[in-house]
Nucleic acid binder design. Structure first.
Length: 293
DNA sequence: CCGGACTCCTGTGCGC
DNA sequence: TGCGCACAGGAGTCCG
């Protein structure tokens, strides 16, 4: 499932194909993937709203969101949800699996071009259209916490200081920290040796520093390997990622902890399957400072 | 106001 | 072998 590393890797694989490219046309097969849950959604979605006729200037990622920004300012925000893919199909090649293809852009670039294909079987993802990158940022990015790839201890402490939720639940909350999903929440808590049910505000500052470092390390390592392919994730070239083989806890309940050998436990926290080591991940249940009036 | 529960959706994998 | 069902999860919404 696509989380921050998958979206970042996708951005890097798409940039050489899309930057400077002209969108010659757009075929929207399912209009309800565009601007979903937007109250002011216009009845009709013009192809220009989906960047037809525009030249792509740059891609911008925040958390799990990818913005495609055109030279005229019109921008798209893409979220892959659970099962989304953005794949570039060069030239006139057939696309691998055309089931659940919701939008296709005809792209002309230096190498003559191809098609950019948005597929999303489960349809938890979507595409949002904006007249400017500024309005995209306001509507999408500014609702999110700091980007997890560059998270430092101070903002993470600030975001967690008044949260009485389990740390796992807080990490999954995109308004606290943008980009971490179920896989990387479990992996980074294992790295930082913090029990996922620990109450966020009870975790000592030193351990939050470890957690910030753990989050950055796990995300960077995954990006280097092209992300975690679980099920359907593919990058912009249609290739799978290799990081799933490096998972220390996710999907490994019942196997020995790679650090201490204790059998990894599985519980449910915040409605999500959670795998951790009972021996080397320490729990914090009481606030370390008395609440102020 | 905060946090937990529910909802959307389809492919996968397991058990009978 | 084949069928059917539980399960997976990002994030918006609702409710206590």
């Amino acid at each position: 499932m696509p989380e921050l590393p998958e979206v970042e890797h996708l951005k890097r694989t798409l940039e050489p194909l899309l930057i400077g490219a002209l969108i010659r046309g757009v075929e929207l097969r399912r209009r309800d993937v565009v601007n979903r849950r937007v109250r002011s959604r216009r009845r009709r979605i013009a192809s220009a709203d989906l960047l037809a006729g525009c030249t792509i200037a740059r891609l911008v990622r925040h958390g799990k969101n990818l913005a495609i920004v055109s030279k005229c300012g019109r921008s798209l925000c893409v979220h892959l949800g659970m099962s989304g893919q953005m794949v570039f199909v060069p030239g006139r090649e057939r696309m691998g699996d055309s089931m659940h293809v919701h939008c296709v852009w005809r792209v002309q670039n230096d190498n003559s071009g191809g098609r950019l294909v948005f597929r999303d079987p489960r349809r938890f993802g979507g595409i949002w259209t904006f007249d400017s990158i500024k309005s995209l940022r306001q509507a999408r990015f500014e609702q999110l916490g700091p980007d997890a790839l560059t998270i430092t201890p101070a903002p993470l402490r600030a975001a967690l200081a008044h949260s009485h939720r389990p740390i796992k639940a807080a990490l999954l909350d995109q308004s606290v920290l943008a980009g971490v999903g179920n896989i990387y929440a479990d992996e980074s808590l294992w790295m930082a040796r913090i029990h996922p049910a620990s109450i966020a505000s009870a975790i000592p500052a030193k351990r939050i520093t470890d957690l910030a470092r753990g989050i950055r390390m796990v995300l960077r390592a995954s990006i280097r390997l092209g992300g975690s392919t679980i099920g359907t994730y593919l990058d912009g070239n249609g290739e799978a990622g290799e990081f799933a083989g490096s998972h220390q806890v996710y999907g490994r309940a019942g196997e020995p902890c790679g650090r201490c050998g204790r059998v990894l436990a599985q519980v449910v926290i915040a409605q999500r399957t959670t795998v951790f080591c009972m021996k080397c991940q320490k729990g914090y249940q009481q606030p370390n400072k008395p609440a102020r009036a």
